[in-house]
Amino acid sequence: MHPIETLLDSWPKLLDGTLMTLKLTLMGALIAGLLSPGFALIRSHASPLAQAPLRLYISFMRGTPILAQLFLIFYGSGQFRPVLQEWGLWNFFRDPFNCALLAFALNSTAYQTEILRGGIQGVAHGEIEAARAIGMNRLKILRRVVFPHAYRIAWPALGNEVILLMKASALASVVTVFDLMAQTRRVFSRSFDFSVYLWAALIYLCLTAAFVLVWRLAERRLGRHILARQQPRPGAPTPRETQA
């Protein structure tokens, strides 16, 4: 079968798989984005004893393959079915999509926490002291000074993390979640046309390219004030004139 004919015949299934991939990626990244700021603050300011459980969790998530984490959640939860039923959680863990989403969210939270911790530690201490000097309380300092600057510093690395999460979402197919890769394998098993994998790779490439474009536009928007500071005011002397 011609590759174009394969694409036309398999397009509905590939589209369904693409939507599932986007759903897994965006929901996992969003959940991680909501949890990581609080964890990053703990990693930056809490005592070593208070950090110990969080550091253990981050080390485990970053030090083990995401496939192993997916298997532990999906297959391991079955070993605790009576307990989960008693707690009313079995309906959640019996769904492959929920298990995959939980694995990706937990994994991305660990990485985003460390990325954001680096951003928080990169905020100039003088800016925090200046905020305190004008009477800002701790919550307002976090909201108006620390986190805005930390996210500007960490933004490129956070984008890379979301891209890695999108590509890792292909592993969800091993627990019967019909994402893009699962639908591709399904089409191949019926047609034995290897070109379907090429189309799947191109779809992943297009998704990644579109995400990078949107992320860079957001990065430029976040850094507009920095560019504005770097531009000289009308009538101000240039660096060459100053040196002269």
Rank of each mutant, 00 (worst) to 15 (best):
R220W: 15
L222A: 15
R233P: 06
T242S: 14
T113K: 01
Q69N: 11
P12W: 03
I120E: 00
A200W: 04
T6E: 13
L15I: 08
M166F: 04
D9N: 05
G28K: 00
F74H: 02
L19E: 13
I66R: 08
K167A: 11
M136P: 06
I42R: 00
E127R: 15
A218D: 12
F178S: 11
Y75V: 10
I153Q: 09
V123A: 10
R240V: 13
V145G: 10
P148V: 08
L56M: 05
Q121N: 06
I42M: 04
A52K: 06
S173C: 08
L30Q: 04
M61P: 02
Y57R: 03
V83Y: 08
A68W: 15
L54D: 08
A50W: 04
R233Y: 10
L213Q: 09
E161N: 12
Y204E: 07
F71Q: 13
A131W: 04
G28F: 02
E127A: 15
M166D: 00
Y111T: 04
W155I: 01
F93T: 02
S36L: 09
F39T: 06
R224A: 15
Q85E: 15
E219W: 02
R186D: 10
E219S: 03
A168Q: 10
A200S: 09
I153E: 08
T21N: 13
E161D: 11
G17M: 01
P156E: 09
F93K: 00
L227T: 09
H225A: 14
H45W: 13
S173W: 07
R132L: 09
F97N: 01
L70S: 03
A236N: 11
L7W: 00
L164V: 10
W215T: 13
R94Y: 05
L72R: 04
R152P: 07
R186M: 13
L158Q: 03
G33A: 10
G33H: 12
L89H: 11
R152Q: 15
E5Q: 11
A150S: 09
L171P: 00
R220I: 15
I141Q: 11
A210M: 13
H2Y: 08
L24K: 01
F147A: 08
L49V: 13
A105M: 02
S10F: 00
S44V: 00
I226L: 13
Y197C: 10
L67V: 15
Q112G: 05
T242Y: 11
H149R: 06
